[in-house]
Design a binder for these strands. Sequence first.
DNA 1: ATCATCTTGGAATGTCCGTTCCAAGATGTC
DNA 2: GACATCTTGGAACGGACATTCCAAGATGAT
Lengths: 196, 196
Amino acid sequence: MPDIKHFDPDVALERVEELFWQRGAATTSIQAVATTTGLNRSSLYATFGDKRDLYLAALRRYVRVRAEPALRRLAQDERGLPAIREFFAELIEARCSGAYAGWGCMIVNAHAGAECADPAVQTLLNQHFEYLRDALRDALDTACHQDQVAEGITAEAADVLTLLAYGVNLRSRAGADADTLHHAVTVTLAQLARDL
Amino acid sequence: MPDIKHFDPDVALERVEELFWQRGAATTSIQAVATTTGLNRSSLYATFGDKRDLYLAALRRYVRVRAEPALRRLAQDERGLPAIREFFAELIEARCSGAYAGWGCMIVNAHAGAECADPAVQTLLNQHFEYLRDALRDALDTACHQDQVAEGITAEAADVLTLLAYGVNLRSRAGADADTLHHAVTVTLAQLARDL
DNA sequence: ATCATCTTGGAATGTCCGTTCCAAGATGTC
DNA sequence: GACATCTTGGAACGGACATTCCAAGATGAT
């Protein structure tokens, strides 16, 4: 083995992911990626392939690192409705304040961009949609078994919550304030909850 | 008056709107606009200004022609819940089949793109969001007065329906099938409706 | 018919894009 | 220490981009 990479591809990919997440695929140039990561274009191409490959790698990293862990936690949470409430509260918090405020969700952003025409991207988007829906369904199922939900409510209501989450992610990008988003979520969950 | 335009700016703008709507602002070149409209670049610049101006004009046209008429109808509809049901049914129909299938909503798409950083665009997006919410609130208010809604449901639930509509628009771009979207809407509206 | 004025087509400009190429340098093996 | 092999920096490429400019043509007013 003659020479080894002078950088850590995983660290670099994290930077790339943040760039594509914040600014989108179409409006982020390879030059910008090179500058941000501190790498040369040659190294980028040698390591990740062309721009499409790079974007796909970044998107996959986003799904794996940023999205799925939270969803796994939600799906396995035994608290039912409180877990769902917390999930949305943390989502809104993350979207409206902190380092990533106004960035939205990379998956949701990809829906509206030209990336979406790419079959590989579309597969990822649909998989993640179902992953989110399944996690919400599991949590709702738990809530049902604990008699937390109003009469007539089943785990089918997960479909609503999934689209609601997408709407929250989207609106956060236009600077929607956290209170407004929180209100919508509270109203929705109040409808699901059993009257006390 | 020495010479008059050899084309109708309104007709041209409709073409431009469709182009930006389908392909987004970042990935649509002035050249593509010129080709599609059959106009020369000079004429485009002389008539509409630069690309940003052109996009803004197209977005404003979309709001005025495509979005607001349907919302005005919804707000003034005296039927209550059935009007809301019909609104969503027509939305899903328009997004999943016909000439504009897979295009989503231009306003929603703008949320996720780089356009969103433009203050003028952001103002339009927020105005439209409130316009949609107000229309749904009006319709829901009508439903409340006609005792169509379940106990505890008020016009506040419009917040939920607004984000739901955004979610529908978004998901339709990734090829979500109409049945899935319809299901989510049906479940939501069933929760609002008074048990019979 | 003349003229001033606007539109129009096409060429031209300079920048930025994604991508490739190559020489120079670094590294592990023998 | 020599060699083979990979990485790296920087230059180079062709194409596409938004935008501007200008000469030619068309038009209405006089």
